[in-house]
């Protein structure tokens, strides 16, 4: 039986014998009778042949394309990170991190200390504004609101997340800057607007995970709701809330658009006058360097990019490790 007779061109040969004389007309009264033109020869070896060989070729090609796609993504990441590290490392030094840029931007040397301090200041203020509001809004959705009002707040937060960051930047400009001068505080508010939905939605997801039994057990003690929230709900969701806040800080540190109209025209020194003038910051500094055609400015911008990317990646990796441990503890 190993020698399959050569099949006619129009008859598929996928593991079947096709003796033409057996192509009996359909016997309606016997649904179990096989449609003979495709009948299986069970004794044939189990190797792929005919159609299956072609189908497997398609399938394996698709497998290869999927692997290649993953490889492309990882290569792009490696390429970008390599570029930033190789360009940035040549300028990065203690003095680069502790000095300001030269008075004239087209000169070599100097550092980015005012921008590092400024970005840290802006992000800290933004976190101080957005974290309490975000956590309270999340508490409202999980602890106090009815279904419909919770959905409304959720919708508002998701829509806030969908507002393009440049629009947020213009909004802040109209609200706090137009007619006055730029000020760091306005930029911080812009960053806070971007952080708010991130913190609120992630906190909400962490709060939902607090076991219902635990909540009921505390309420059954007859203590007030705020005691339950403070004593049980928040502590058991603390890991999730912290994760969300830190991740949103890393995200905000890399934002440029909300600062563009609020805190972009800055001097080269450290500025703590957040209500009176623009606060120097890393992202706008890099953005301005990319608009210019000055290689010393580019070199400093690479250094700034390395400092910023290093911070963001380290935070992301650390949070990922922390989060994995926390989840393992929650489940185990």
């Amino acid at each position: 039986m190993s020698s399959t007779p050569p099949a006619p061109a129009d008859v598929p040969v996928d593991g079947v014998l096709a003796p033409p004389e057996e192509q009996a007309p359909l016997e309606r009264e016997d649904p179990l009778a096989p449609l003979t033109e495709y009948r299986l020869d069970p004794a044939r070896p189990l190797r792929a042949s005919g159609h299956l060989r072609r189908r497997q070729l398609v399938s394996r090609t698709m497998d290869a394309l999927q692997s290649a796609s993953a490889l492309i993504a990882v290569s792009v990441l490696a390429f970008v990170v390599y570029s930033v590290v190789s360009h940035g490392a040549s300028i990065l030094s203690i003095s680069f991190l502790t000095k300001g840029p030269p008075l004239i931007e087209t000169e070599p040397g100097g550092g980015i200390a005012p921008m590092i301090v400024g970005t840290a200041t802006l992000v800290a203020i933004a976190a101080a504004i957005s974290a309490p509001i975000g956590i309270l809004a999340a508490l409202y959705m999980t602890e106090f609101a009815g279904r419909r009002s919770a959905r409304l707040v959720r919708l508002a937060l998701d829509l806030l997340y969908g507002v393009p960051t440049i629009v947020t930047g213009l909004f802040i400009f109209a609200l706090l800057v137009a007619g006055k001068s730029q000020m760091g505080f306005a930029g911080a508010v812009g960053l806070a607007i971007i952080m708010l939905p991130l913190i609120a939605r992630a906190t909400q997801e962490a709060l939902v995970l607090v076991p219902r039994d635990l909540r009921q057990a505390v309420e059954a003690l007859g203590v007030g709701r705020w005691r339950a929230v403070r004593g049980v709900v928040l502590p058991s969701a603390l890991g999730g809330i912290l994760t969300a806040t830190v991740l949103s800080i890393a995200r905000a540190a890399g934002e440029t658009a909300p600062l563009l109209f609020a805190s972009s025209v800055f001097s080269n020194g450290v500025s703590m006058n957040i209500f009176g003038e623009a606060t120097p910051n890393l992202t706008v500094y890099i953005y301005k360097a990319s608009e210019g055609a000055n290689r010393f400015g580019w070199a400093r911008a690479w250094g700034a990019a390395l400092a910023l990317l290093g911070f963001i990646l380290v935070v992301n990796i650390a949070i990922r490790a922390f989060d994995a441990r926390r989840r393992a503890r929650l489940l185990g």
Partner: peptide, 14 residues
């Protein structure tokens, strides 16, 4: 792959 999303847009543009 998720790290790719963490790169700030200004650095990607640069």
């Amino acid at each position: 792959v998720e790290m790719l999303a963490a790169i700030p847009s200004v650095i990607l543009g640069f």
